[in-house]
Write a protein that binds this DNA or RNA. Structure first.
Length: 256
DNA sequence: ATGGTCGCGGTGCGA
């Protein structure tokens, strides 16, 4: 079972690229982030034609998350549903082949000390409570998406430059660690403790061709799935050429 | 070089 995550930065602008990648990569499950459209505008037919069901939690202009799968996702839950007054569409969950799948788009955080930065830290706490309320670490569960945190310096092209900046601050890393303390493992890092691969590059400054990136897109899994780990990677080529997203798809393969 | 580029929506904002 191959599970992937991709921040597409507008699913309508990225439709052809998404379809091409689905056809070549053949993931069983794909968690999408930053759809930037409402549910009715999602290119449902295009993904259906290449063999995928889709469940979507859309939003006009901003955010928006979805799950694509070769078999039909069931028990769909949209949002954190924790009673907080929050219009951001950043989370969707569904069950695929007995695995609970969560697609998450964590707030970017803008700049340290901003309102958005505080919202980001709180959002991490809300997601931890969501897991505590609804799930057990012994269940087969994956959380996939854009976490907007580089977990360690190895995940940053120039750690000295990024020291203390959003995506790399101690507070953000601690927030992510506290989330993972629920019982989640970073599947890529577990498989390859010393490998440096990035999933995001700034659109500016020729960051992509120079490979000046960060690893901020992750696939986290609970113990029953960690036992089944086979391989993981980043499809950097899906980012090349015309109409690239600033993120590349990341994926992890589990034994069936 | 404190800039630069995307996407949305039709201006400046979020990333």
């Amino acid at each position: 079972m191959k599970i992937a995550a991709w921040n597409v930065n507008s699913v309508r602008a990225r439709k052809d690229r998404l379809v091409d990648w689905l056809k070549s990569a053949q993931p069983d499950v794909v968690c999408l982030q930053e759809l930037k459209c409402q549910d009715a505008e999602f290119p449902m037919e295009a993904v259906r034609e290449v063999g995928y069901h889709a469940v979507v939690h859309g939003q006009k202009t901003y955010n928006g998350v979805g799950i694509l799968a070769k078999t039909e996702p069931t028990d769909v839950v949209r949002g954190l549903s924790d009673g907080v007054d929050d219009t951001h569409a950043r989370l969707i969950a569904a069950t695929v082949n007995g695995v609970r799948v969560v697609s998450a788009y964590v707030p970017n955080g803008q700049s340290v000390g901003s309102e958005q930065y505080e919202y980001k830290l709180q959002w991490y706490g809300r997601l931890r409570r969501y897991l505590d309320t609804r799930h057990k670490p012994g269940e087969p569960l994956v959380l996939c998406g854009d976490w907007n945190v580089a977990p360690a310096d190895i995940d940053v092209w120039d750690p000295a430059l990024w020291q203390g900046q959003t995506l790399c601050t101690d507070k953000e890393r601690k927030a992510l660690e506290h989330l993972c303390a629920f019982g989640l493992t970073d599947t890529f890092r577990k498989l390859y403790p010393a490998e440096q691969k990035f999933s995001w590059w700034d659109y500016r400054m020729l960051a992509f061709p120079k490979n000046q990136g960060l690893r901020i897109d992750h696939i986290f899994a609970t113990a029953p799935l960690v036992e089944r780990l086979v391989s993981a990677g980043v499809d950097r080529d899906a980012r090349k050429g015309k109409q690239p997203s600033d993120h590349a798809p990341v994926w992890t393969e589990f034994k069936d």
